Deep mutational scan, measured.
Amino acid sequence: EHQTACDSYWTSVHPEYWTKRHVWEWLQFCCDQYKLDTNCISFCNFNISGLQLCSMTQEEFVEAAGLCGEYLYFILQNIRTQG
Rank of each mutant, 00 (worst) to 15 (best):
E1Y: 11
E1F: 06
H2M: 08
T4P: 10
T4E: 10
T4Q: 09
T4I: 13
T4N: 09
T4F: 11
A5L: 12
A5K: 11
Y9W: 15
Y9N: 08
Y9H: 14
Y9C: 11
W10L: 11
T11A: 10
V13N: 04
V13S: 02
V13Y: 06
H14R: 13
H14F: 07
H14M: 09
P15N: 04
P15V: 02
P15G: 00
P15M: 06
P15R: 00
P15W: 10
P15Q: 02
E16A: 12
E16T: 12
E16S: 11
E16D: 06
E16F: 06
E16V: 10
Y17D: 13
Y17Q: 13
Y17E: 15
Y17W: 04
W18K: 02
W18M: 00
T19G: 04
T19M: 00
K20M: 05
K20Y: 00
R21E: 15
R21P: 07
R21A: 12
R21C: 08
R21N: 13
R21W: 08
H22S: 04
H22D: 14
H22V: 04
V23T: 02
W24L: 14
W24R: 15
W24A: 10
E25K: 11
E25F: 02
E25L: 08
E25R: 08
W26C: 01
W26H: 00
L27E: 00
L27D: 00
Q28P: 09
Q28E: 09
Q28F: 00
F29T: 14
F29E: 07
F29N: 08
F29L: 05
C30I: 04
C30A: 09
C30F: 04
C30V: 09
C31R: 06
C31D: 02
C31I: 07
C31M: 09
D32V: 10
D32Q: 15
D32L: 06
Q33C: 10
Q33V: 07
Q33I: 06
Y34D: 01
K35W: 05
K35M: 11
K35N: 15
L36P: 01
L36G: 07
L36E: 01
D37F: 05
D37K: 02
D37N: 08
D37S: 10
D37C: 05
D37A: 06
T38A: 11
T38Y: 12
T38I: 14
N39P: 02
N39C: 06
N39W: 00
C40G: 13
C40K: 15
C40H: 15
I41R: 01
I41E: 05
I41L: 09
I41S: 04
S42G: 08
S42K: 14
S42W: 04
F43P: 10
F43Q: 14
F43A: 09
F43T: 09
C44W: 08
C44M: 11
C44H: 12
N45V: 08
N45P: 04
F46S: 03
F46K: 03
F46R: 03
N47F: 00
N47E: 12
N47K: 11
N47D: 13
I48K: 09
I48A: 03
I48M: 09
S49A: 07
S49Q: 05
G50P: 15
L51G: 12
L51P: 10
L51Q: 14
L51S: 15
L51M: 13
L51N: 13
L51A: 14
L51V: 12
L53Q: 04
L53P: 03
L53Y: 00
C54Q: 02
C54M: 05
C54W: 01
S55Y: 07
S55F: 05
S55M: 10
S55W: 02
M56C: 01
M56S: 05
M56P: 01
M56W: 14
T57Q: 06
T57R: 07
T57L: 04
Q58F: 04
Q58R: 13
Q58G: 02
E59L: 07
F61I: 05
F61G: 01
V62I: 13
V62D: 03
V62N: 08
V62R: 10
E63I: 04
E63Q: 09
E63W: 04
E63T: 12
E63A: 11
A64C: 11
A65L: 07
A65G: 12
A65T: 11
G66K: 03
G66L: 01
L67P: 14
L67T: 14
L67N: 14
L67D: 15
C68V: 11
C68W: 06
C68M: 12
C68G: 12
C68Y: 12
C68K: 12
G69T: 00
G69E: 01
G69A: 02
G69C: 00
G69K: 04
E70T: 10
Y71E: 15
Y71P: 15
L72Q: 02
L72S: 03
F74G: 15
F74P: 10
F74V: 14
I75P: 03
I75E: 15
L76E: 01
L76W: 00
L76S: 02
L76D: 01
L76I: 03
Q77G: 07
Q77M: 08
Q77W: 06
N78W: 05
I79W: 12
I79A: 08
I79M: 12
R80M: 12
R80E: 02
R80S: 03
R80W: 02
T81K: 14
T81C: 10
T81P: 04
T81H: 12
T81G: 13
Q82T: 13
Q82R: 11
Q82I: 06
G83R: 13
G83I: 09
G83V: 10
G83Q: 06
